[in-house]
Design a protein around this nucleic acid. Structure first.
Lengths: 341, 341
DNA sequence: ACAAACTCGTTAAACGTTTAACCAAAATTT
DNA sequence: AAATTTTGGTTAAACGTTTAACGAGTTTGT
């Protein structure tokens, strides 16, 4: 039933080598025979066996994709969207993605992802912050690796990063342009470079505008930047500072938490408080008002990561290229002109 | 660097066949040689080449997992959690999962997932409702297939289903036990068997309790059961029916939409209206009050699906077994005794 | 006109496993 | 003690590709 290269060769009246050359056009073949072969391939509905190719080439044609359980399952489809971008690009490149998640508290004893142990991938994409012990143990396998949205401690990997500083500048400047001066920053998980860069950009924007940076307007002690922590941080912020007129949250998840707090406590958004998020996860269409935020091109990030990894797989010399994807301010209805009374 | 079976054989002073027999224990080998081989394997850090095994066995060791984009990206981590269960079980069974998503409006011209065309999977798991044209085209490839949470038109596949009727009975009976009689049902996408079964169970529970089923309390015209549609359906329901004291929403997403509507419009939950969801997606920890719902064992569903598919892959005769996973009522704070005035 | 260089192919080895067929030695049966 | 079975192993073919090495015709250069 299943046809092989041999069947094609027989049908086209050529050797199997010729068929191979036609498929990969790795050697010049006359138009005429080429067509005969192509025709035979079509008629037999022939598809090369991946295992045979793998065996002889030493490549698997697979790329491993690693993220933590919580990133995979979190409400805001951030990393999953990135994954989709990777999968999408993998299709055109002829690769398969092996997705696996690990526990965020991955420890020394936990086993590495199978595809690494069994060498069933040619390269690895790691999305988001993952435990350093895992990074070290993976690096022993000398597999091409690229990181998405995270800067690993030993910084000689290809990276796909968000232009976080630029994004934070855009967000904060937007608020400054709306005449706000008491602008708070709500963040979390400061160990993550993305989030600390956003804080940095926030400070930078204030300084550029000659607005003093006040530490009591910066709440960054949340362990994880999700809605619940956004809510809690907002509570902490507003119970001590009544004069805050604008909040820049380090991501949409926390911004949504802030919004809930504000709604619950009689603050009107944007009349009383303007609010800007980051990521544009389009999480909750129910949100009112719709959130002004910084759009991150998630699909493109996945695409870029796959391109990078394919590159280092193919050309053994992997120069640790960094791709900084651009961001964009999306103004919706959660921000408005500051009413200085 | 990479060691092969040959290296192991040499080191252990046996033939490669013996090594193979030890690995798969497919033939009796004396304890002594077995230990020698095992030792050599460990020392060389030998891992069998998957491609070589694939080539000779004709099996790929991969399972394809298909769902629609919107299911993959939706805010409530329902199908993604199921996927995680599948991935988890695949690890212990030694399989890899190839995840791919398709557009919900998959049409005749769209290409099938690559892993089907290239025969790089031994079987397929399909999660959630997918277009019938896709099902038909896949079936031509005669690959073992199991469906999760969907009943395909040609019903001779192994299936992993939720005990939806039981769940709907539990939910509705819970409300009836709380003395509610004006119990509404909010649903959507009635073409999905899961959701129509939930409606069925709702009606059944009312009939069992001798409560008349009123059509104006049943809103099922939503196209897709998400938050936004839940919100809209609630609006439709409550603007016409002021005396509704309880709502059973066909899933948590719609329930959350209903809750938003109620909160926005001055209804207190559960004091004025009791609300029950379905799925227990733990989507929004911010929700107040926390939602009474029907827990669906999502991880277990993924595990069961993988077991089924491995079964039909291994034993060519795949009897179309159906697995009905049990559900459980989780009482939280969105339901309370009806205050009949 | 003859060597040199292309062009378009073919042959056969190699990749790393599994497994059918075979076999020697030891154990068991008669 | 001879015949038979069991035990524990080996040899070699097969799986479906890629690719190095080779070669027969044809073209080009002088």
């Amino acid at each position: 039933m299943k046809s092989t290269i041999k069947d094609v060769a027989k049908k086209a009246n050529v050797s199997i080598a010729t068929v191979s050359f036609v498929i990969n056009d790795s050697k010049p073949i006359s138009e005429e025979t080429k067509n005969r072969v192509l025709k035979a391939i079509k008629e037999l509905n022939y598809h090369p066996s991946k295992s045979a190719i793998s065996l002889v080439s030493g490549k698997t044609g697979n790329i491993g994709f690693i993220l933590t359980d919580d990133h995979f399952l979190r409400t805001e489809p951030f990393y999953t969207t990135i994954f989709l971008g990777t999968e999408f690009e993998a299709r055109s490149e002829g690769y398969y993605i092996l997705l696996t998640s690990i526990r965020p508290d991955f420890s020394e004893e936990d086993p590495l992802p199978r595809f690494i142990l069994n060498k069933s991938v040619d390269g690895i994409i790691i999305a988001g912050k993952i435990p350093h012990t895992l990074i070290e143990r993976i690096s022993a396998y000398k597999l091409p690796t690229v990181f998405i949205d995270y800067i690993p401690p030993t910084n000689n990997y290809p990276l796909v990063l968000i232009d976080n500083i630029q994004g934070a500048l855009l967000a904060t400047n937007h608020l400054i342009n709306l005449r706000h001066t008491n602008i708070a920053f709500i963040g979390g998980d400061i160990g993550h470079p993305s989030l600390s860069h956003r804080l940095y950009g926030y400070k930078q924007a204030l300084e550029n505008a000659n607005i003093p940076v006040k530490n009591n307007l910066i709440v960054v002690d949340a362990k994880y930047p999700d809605r619940q922590h956004g809510f809690n941080s907002a509570k902490k912020l507003f119970s001590k500072n009544k004069n805050v007129t604008a909040v820049f949250a380090c991501n949409d998840a926390m911004a949504i938490g802030v919004l809930h707090y504000l709604n619950d406590n009689g603050y009107k958004v944007p009349q009383d408080v303007s609010l800007v998020g980051f990521d544009d996860v389009e999480a909750d269409i129910m949100l009112h008002p719709p959130l002004t935020t910084i759009r991150v091109p998630k699909i493109e990030m996945g695409v870029e990561a796959l391109k990078l990894i394919v590159n280092s797989v193919k050309s053994k010399k992997s120069l640790p290229k960094k791709v900084l994807v651009p961001v964009e301010l999306i103004v919706r209805e959660s921000t408005s002109l500051c009413k200085t009374k």
